[in-house]
Amino acid sequence: MELQTAEAVLPAKEIHPFWYKLKKNPMTLAGLAVLAVIVLLSLAAPLITSFDPNKINVVERFQGPSAKHWFGTDEVGRDIFTRILYGTRLSLGIGVAIVVAAGAIGTVLGTVSGYLGGKIDQIMMRIMDMILAFPTLILAMAFAAALGPNLQNAMIAIAVVKIPVYVRLARGETLALREKLFVKAAVTFGIKPWRIIARHIVPNVVSPIVIQVTLDIGDAILLVATLGFLGLGAQPPTPEWGAMISVGWKYLLDYWWYPTFPGLALFLASGALNLIGDGIRDILDPKSGR
């Protein structure tokens, strides 16, 4: 007997649900818009401003906001607007690098530990509990101080502190996935565990991890800035937002613009990233809308 060929149910062209839900989520759109403006401005920095972020010009030190220096100048006469623009690249880049590294390492550790279970899993979880037992900032400070005060070490410290969040997230998802029929099917085919982890577990764990990563970028930037503020992160004269606030803080009463504008930039960027993270979580949650 000739077999009837079934028609594909879904037509080829339609709006992707992601964009549909995005359109219905104005706060996320606002966050995306703000972030886009910040990123574009920083990329176009050489076109927008003619100043050099590191060029010292003592004659023009501590000038208030004006047509020439929009956000004023600092104690050695550098244009603060220019330094914020160039600092964006650094701060955002650092934030992204930290959480992506933490997310990747956490995903690997969490999925392997969750899938294999047993002793490996127990030891792994105890280590993560230990890290989580300390307040993030204190632990990051301790690591950074132990490694030596520079930007790279601050990044490593923050990444290490962030890893347990991802391990737990990935492990939890893995435990649920391990019971899924498609994973059991793979087991019956005789597929090796490492391949099951790579082909089935990790791809299905990625979306909650990405959400967490987006939510954490703002937090990581803040932590870098805090370490910078405490003198444990980027060292002056690097145009990093935290370092700028850290130095500018001393001049707040006399020259309010110096720490205020970098602070505002930090506030805007981390706020935008949080809105985006929340939005992506709503969008990827299958229970929200249809």
Binding site: F182, A186, F189, G190, I191, K192, R199, P203, N204
Partner: peptide
Amino acid sequence: LDPRMTVKDIIVEPLHA
């Protein structure tokens, strides 16, 4: 069936053993 895989990858999966 793994929602993240294409039909091709799904069907050839048992061959990897």
